[in-house]
Simulated assay, not measured.
Amino acid sequence: MDRRTLLRATVAGAAAFSGSLWSGAALAAPAQPGSSPYGPLGAADTNGIQLPAGFSSRVVARSRQQVGSTGYTWHDAPDGGACFAAGTGWIYVSNSEISLTGGASAVRFDATGNILSAYRILGNTNRNCAGGATPWGTWLSGEEVNRGYVYETYPEGGRAGVRRAALGRFSHEAAACDPDRQVIYLTEDEPTGCFYRFRPTVWSDLSAGTLEVLVAGTGTSGPVSWARVPDPDGSPTQTRDQVAGAKRFNGGEGCWYADGTCWFTTKGDNRVWAYDAVAQRIDLAYDDSLVSGSAPLTGVDNITGSRGGDLYVAEDGGNMEINIITPDEVVAPFLRITGQSSSEICGPAFSPDGSRLYFSSQRGTSGLSSGGITYEVRGPFR
């Protein structure tokens, strides 16, 4: 299997996407700057977003304003998000990274993208940052606080979110489900954080299971193993400090699983990592200090994958871009938000058919949590 085929297979997406399993070969090298398959960015549109030719944007929701004609007021500081199929349409869920009253909300769309409703799916939780979708249709919402929890929530509403303490108490960021090994990968937003996996006793039942931490050498590539975390409650000893040899990652952020590989990001060193779950090894997919010339992607944060096999990585700061990493190991800007330098891009997620990309600017033009904006981009995604 050549490198192009290998990367396309491993980032092809969740269960609805297809591709060949990882062959066990290491990544050839971290991605390098190059030309985007969509061409250069054009002038900013009326929403202040620069896009390639053929793409357009619209505002879906603004913090403290009504979502469409639903009567529901959108939350402050929109953060991690995901899309779920719902009838003939879909639902986009979004976390709120607000202290004590964070939680998550949802917007429901019909088959043509019209907004049908918006509503709360989780309330009165603490700094809900990122999370992840499960194969059984729930949203895992993580608290980015010391000894934070993960909550399992229900995108269609009508059911209260459930605290899932078995997934560990630490500064949670993202989660990604691996249905092949029946585990959930978890990132930790600490300068000396770890990379975890949770093995439910019964797949799809997150009430009980085993929390493990990745153990490896000090290098950026090579074989790894997993060790059980003795006390997932993290008190009095933090989960990251309970296992000797646990590998440290500088500020874990986004996490995305696709067909044998879990891709995750670390903001402290602007890296995208690839964990090969078949061969049990890690490699670097991107490192801004190893690029030739100027690095297009900095402030590495949330990550998602497309049906066409590309990774989309959002920036917290940087140039306020979402960058694409292609199967050719090319990294390039896909879009740029202008006039919002005091914000960050959060929650990139594709609609189930892959034709629309949702994301938020957490603080919008004001630079305040009350200024968040959630967008949709449509166009000829490959």
Rank of each mutant, 00 (worst) to 15 (best):
D2M: 03
R4P: 02
L6A: 15
A9I: 00
A15S: 14
A16H: 09
W22H: 13
S23H: 08
A28F: 06
G34R: 01
S36K: 07
P40S: 10
L41D: 08
G42M: 10
A44W: 08
L51H: 04
L51S: 07
A53F: 13
S57G: 10
V59I: 15
V60N: 02
R64E: 14
R64A: 14
Q65R: 15
G68K: 09
S69K: 13
T73H: 13
W74T: 00
D79L: 09
D79V: 12
G87S: 04
Y92V: 10
Y92C: 05
G103N: 06
G103T: 07
A104W: 04
D110W: 02
N114V: 10
L116Q: 13
R120Y: 02
T125C: 12
A130D: 15
A130I: 06
G131L: 06
T134R: 09
T134D: 05
W136V: 06
T138H: 11
L140M: 14
S141H: 05
S141E: 12
G142C: 08
G142F: 06
E143Y: 06
N146T: 15
G148C: 11
V150P: 05
E152L: 02
E156G: 12
R164M: 04
G168I: 00
T187G: 12
E188G: 11
P191K: 14
G193N: 08
A208F: 03
A208Y: 05
T210V: 15
V213A: 06
G219M: 09
V224A: 04
V224C: 08
D233A: 13
P236F: 09
Q238A: 15
Q238P: 09
Q238W: 12
D241A: 14
Q242N: 02
Q242E: 02
V243M: 08
A244D: 12
G245E: 07
K247V: 01
R248D: 03
G260K: 03
K267D: 15
G268P: 14
D269W: 07
W273D: 01
D276H: 12
A277L: 11
V278M: 06
V278D: 10
A279F: 00
I282A: 09
I282S: 09
V291Q: 03
G293R: 11
A295G: 11
V300R: 06
I303F: 03
I303Q: 05
T304L: 08
S306H: 00
G309M: 03
V313S: 10
A314R: 10
I322Q: 00
I324T: 13
I324P: 08
I325Q: 01
P327K: 04
D328Y: 00
V330L: 08
V330S: 07
R336N: 04
G339D: 13
S341T: 15
P348V: 03
P348E: 05
G354M: 01
R356L: 14
S360Y: 10
Q362G: 09
Q362I: 14
R363F: 11
G364F: 11
T365N: 10
G372Q: 08
Y375A: 09
E376Q: 10
P380L: 03
R382N: 08
